[in-house]
Every structure is written in structure tokens, then in C-alpha cells.
């Protein structure tokens, strides 16, 4: 029973962290985009404009919630909920730190659902459910632009899911487990998967961009051609939820990449150098800091790329997915398999 309560508490913390991170990302996105364009960015609300996301959310809440006349109301309502729920529920398998050794000798794992033996599969499965939110949003709005956005999104996600899965398979072959904690443990001491799987990392990274609908693959919401894509007909906090889901997705994608390729919370030499024992509170905090640091680098990359690259054309996107990433992913598996087979 107490473990249930504990899990609930951890879940609540994880949710709040994710939402705060999403808010912070909105702010950072605007700031970084401004810097890249010789501008300053939001700096009026609160110190350094830090309260800008709060003001944004307040604005979204007070806006009128418009449902188009011919929309399919239940689906129109459910779609943003699916999007955000999926984006947030992935969090539970992510391990931002190892464990805390309690007085009675039990291990308190920091992850919400630690040692799930299909952790990675869970992520892949849920992230593809996210497409339902977008497709339903596009379809239920009864608007051609929304529908096109939703369709594009489903095609894009299915195409890149494959490449992503193949890249992940190779990483799993190296790590020997689907469990997030195990994957991190197998990379301890600086034996990060990125050194053995540079190609896999690249494929996974590109696929993550496509999965999260971020530029240069933000075709589902390509403004010049589709107005706003699948969320054209959304307003108020429903639109806010889509917005939030995008950033939450970015966060989870970065966290998964960190886990899979960058050694998760692992930092070679430093913990032993500082004399941090495994299972103690300082060690846990240190690990959290390392994890957050790595995730931040990836998140910065997400934003940085968005404000650098122009959007792909649809055929280019499909070409890249099916004719480049997929064969590369397969080749990567074969090579990795051979090496793992002969070396181990």
C-alpha cells in the first residue's frame, strides 16, 4: 500500500516538473529564437521576463473556447487531452537518478515506475499513440487544413517511428536490456552508447525531431500552407494543451535520448572523485543534476535547430525517412549485431 502512495507522490512530482519544464521551454524558445534573430525576446513580465509563460497561460485561460459549428464535439474535446496525457505519461518510465538507500536497507528508486522491463517499448508505444491526438484534432475540426495537418502528421509519425525503432533496437543490443535503469547501468563509467552507436544516435535524434513535430519536420503545422495545421480550430486552453504537449514531448524525447545514448545520470569519475556513495542523498542530487544537464543540452539543440533550418518539403521528408534513415537503421542493426556477436 505504501508503495502505491509513494508512486502517486512520485508521479505528482514528475507531472509538476514536466509542466514547469514545458513552461520554461516556452520561455527559452522565445528567448533563443530572439537571440538568433538579433532580438532580445520577452523581458517585460517579471525579472528577465521569466513570468512570461505564466502570463501566456493566464491569457489562454481567459480566452474564449470556440468549437466550430460542424465539429465533432466529443472528439474535438478529447484530442488535446490525448495529446497531453500521452506526452506526460511517458515520464513514468524515465529514470532521472538511480536510487536512495533507506535506513531499513530498501532501495527507493527515483523513477516513478522503476525497473519496468519493457520501459523503452513503453515509450515507443505511447509516443505513437500521441498521433491519435493530432489526427483526431485534425479530423474532428471539420476543416480541410486541420485534416491535412492531421494526415501529414500520421504519415510522418509512422514513417519515422520505424527508423526510431530500428535505431533503438541497435542500442538495446549493445545495452542488453529494455529496462531504462538497466540501460543506464550498462553505460556506467562513461561507456555511453553514443560512442558505440553514433549512427544510431543520429537516426534516433532525427526521428525524434519528426516524432515531436518539431522543425525542420513541423509539416503538420506548416503555417504558410495549413494555417495552423491540426490546431487551427482550437482556441483557449485546448490550444494551450497542444502547445504544452509539444514541449512535454520534447522533454520526454530528450530524456529518452539521454537515457539511451548519453548514459542517463552517469558521469564518469566525478562521483567517486567527490566521494559520493551510491544510494546517498548527495549522490542522488548529483545524478539528478547530471541528468538535467544532459537533457538541457538536447533541449537546447531542439530549439537551436528549429530556428536554424527551414522546413522540409513533404516528399523530402518521406524520402529521408524511407530511403535514407530506414536503410541506415537496418545497416546499423546488422553491423551492431555482428560486432556484438563476435566481440562478446
Amino acid at each position: 500500500m505504501s508503495s502505491l502512495v509513494l508512486t502517486l507522490i512520485k508521479g505528482a512530482i514528475a507531472l509538476n516538473v514536466a509542466l514547469v519544464v514545458a513552461a520554461a521551454l516556452v520561455y527559452l524558445e522565445r528567448r533563443i529564437s530572439a537571440w538568433i534573430q538579433y532580438r532580445i525576446g520577452p523581458n517585460r513580465v517579471g525579472p528577465f521576463g521569466l513570468l512570461q509563460p505564466l502570463a501566456d497561460v493566464l491569457k489562454l485561460y481567459t480566452k474564449e473556447d470556440i468549437v466550430p459549428y460542424n465539429a465533432s464535439k466529443p472528439f474535438h474535446r478529447i484530442a488535446p487531452i490525448i495529446s497531453i496525457a500521452v506526452a506526460l505519461s511517458v515520464l513514468c518510465v524515465i529514470a532521472p537518478a538511480s536510487y536512495l538507500l533507506l535506513d531499513d536497507g530498501t532501495k527507493l528508486f527515483i523513477a516513478v515506475a522503476p525497473n519496468v522491463n519493457v520501459g523503452l517499448l513503453f515509450y515507443l508505444a505511447l509516443s505513437s499513440i500521441g498521433v491519435y491526438g493530432i489526427v483526431l484534432a485534425g479530423w474532428s475540426s471539420n476543416n480541410k487544413y486541420s485534416l491535412l495537418g492531421g494526415l501529414r502528421s500520421s504519415a510522418q509519425m509512422i514513417s519515422y517511428e520505424l527508423a526510431m525503432g530500428l535505431a533503438a533496437v541497435a542500442a538495446v543490443m549493445v545495452s542488453g536490456s529494455l529496462d531504462m535503469n538497466q540501460i543506464i547501468a550498462s553505460q556506467s563509467g562513461g561507456r555511453w552508447n553514443i560512442w558505440f552507436q553514433p549512427l544510431g544516435f543520429l537516426i534516433f535524434l532525427v526521428a525524434s525531431f519528426a516524432e515531436t513535430n518539431r522543425a525542420p519536420f513541423d509539416l503538420p503545422e506548416a503555417e504558410p500552407e495549413l494555417v495552423g495545421g491540426y490546431h487551427t480550430e482550437y482556441s483557449g486552453m485546448k490550444f494551450g494543451l497542444f502547445y504544452l504537449a509539444e514541449y512535454a514531448n520534447m522533454f520526454t524525447a530528450s530524456a529518452v535520448m539521454t537515457t539511451l545514448y548519453l548514459g542517463g545520470y552517469d558521469m564518469p569519475f566525478l562521483p567517486t572523485l567527490l566521494g559520493l556513495q551510491e544510494g546517498t542523498l548527495p549522490r542522488v542530487l548529483f545524478e539528478l543534476a547530471v541528468f538535467v544537464g544532459k537533457v538541457s543540452v538536447l533541449l537546447f539543440l531542439f530549439i537551436w535547430v528549429r530556428w536554424t533550418l527551414p522546413r522540409f518539403r513533404y516528399d523530402q521528408l518521406m524520402n529521408l525517412g524511407w530511403r535514407v534513415l530506414l536503410p541506415l537503421g537496418l545497416a546499423n542493426i546488422v553491423i551492431t549485431g555482428a560486432i556484438v556477436f563476435f566481440v562478446r
Binding site: 533563443i32 530572439a34 537571440w35 538568433i36 534573430q37 538579433y38 532580438r39 532580445i40
Partner: peptide
């Protein structure tokens, strides 16, 4: 590099 250039705002 642009990020650290002087701002025009």
C-alpha cells in the same frame, strides 16, 4: 554565433 552578437532591438 549570432546569439552573442549585439542586439538590434
Amino acid at each position: 554565433k549570432t546569439m552573442f552578437k549585439p542586439k538590434l532591438t
